[in-house]
Amino acid sequence: MNSTSQSDSTIDPPIETIQFYYNGIQIIGKIIIQTKQDLVVEMTSPYKGFKTGLHKPHFADPRSSYLDEEGLDYAITN
Results as ranks from 00 to 15, higher is better:
residue 54 L to E: 02
residue 44 T to C: 06
residue 28 I to L: 08
residue 49 G to H: 03
residue 72 L to A: 00
residue 14 P to W: 03
residue 69 E to R: 09
residue 56 K to A: 13
residue 75 A to K: 02
residue 52 T to P: 03
residue 77 T to A: 11
residue 65 S to A: 08
residue 67 L to F: 01
residue 43 M to P: 00
residue 25 I to V: 12
residue 58 H to A: 13
residue 25 I to M: 05
residue 23 N to Q: 14
residue 27 I to K: 12
residue 9 S to F: 03
residue 16 E to R: 08
residue 20 F to K: 05
residue 53 G to W: 02
residue 27 I to D: 00
residue 2 N to H: 03
residue 78 N to H: 12
residue 64 S to L: 14
residue 14 P to N: 11
residue 67 L to I: 07
residue 63 R to D: 12
residue 45 S to A: 09
residue 64 S to T: 15
residue 2 N to P: 03
residue 49 G to A: 09
residue 71 G to I: 07
residue 24 G to M: 06
residue 32 I to N: 10
residue 35 T to F: 02
residue 46 P to R: 02
residue 77 T to K: 14
residue 60 A to C: 12
residue 20 F to Y: 14
residue 33 I to Q: 11
residue 63 R to L: 12
residue 13 P to M: 03
residue 32 I to S: 01
residue 6 Q to W: 03
residue 77 T to V: 10
residue 17 T to A: 08
residue 34 Q to I: 01
residue 4 T to F: 06
residue 31 I to Q: 09
residue 30 K to H: 08
residue 70 E to H: 15
residue 8 D to L: 11
residue 21 Y to V: 07
residue 24 G to I: 04
residue 4 T to G: 07
residue 74 Y to A: 12
residue 38 D to M: 02
residue 45 S to L: 03
residue 36 K to A: 11
residue 9 S to K: 09
residue 26 Q to G: 00
residue 16 E to H: 06
residue 77 T to N: 14
residue 50 F to R: 09
residue 37 Q to K: 10
residue 7 S to P: 01
residue 74 Y to E: 13
residue 29 G to I: 07
residue 63 R to T: 14
residue 50 F to V: 10
residue 55 H to R: 13
residue 61 D to K: 15
residue 17 T to N: 04
residue 72 L to K: 13
residue 59 F to E: 15
residue 39 L to C: 07
residue 24 G to K: 02
residue 49 G to F: 12
residue 70 E to R: 11
residue 32 I to C: 08
residue 4 T to D: 13
residue 62 P to H: 10
residue 26 Q to S: 03
residue 36 K to E: 05
residue 48 K to N: 01
residue 74 Y to V: 09
residue 37 Q to D: 09
residue 25 I to A: 06
residue 40 V to C: 06
residue 44 T to A: 07
residue 30 K to D: 08
residue 33 I to L: 04
residue 63 R to E: 14
residue 32 I to A: 05
residue 60 A to L: 15
residue 16 E to S: 06
residue 64 S to I: 11
residue 16 E to D: 06
residue 68 D to K: 13
residue 8 D to Y: 02
residue 51 K to T: 13
residue 65 S to D: 13
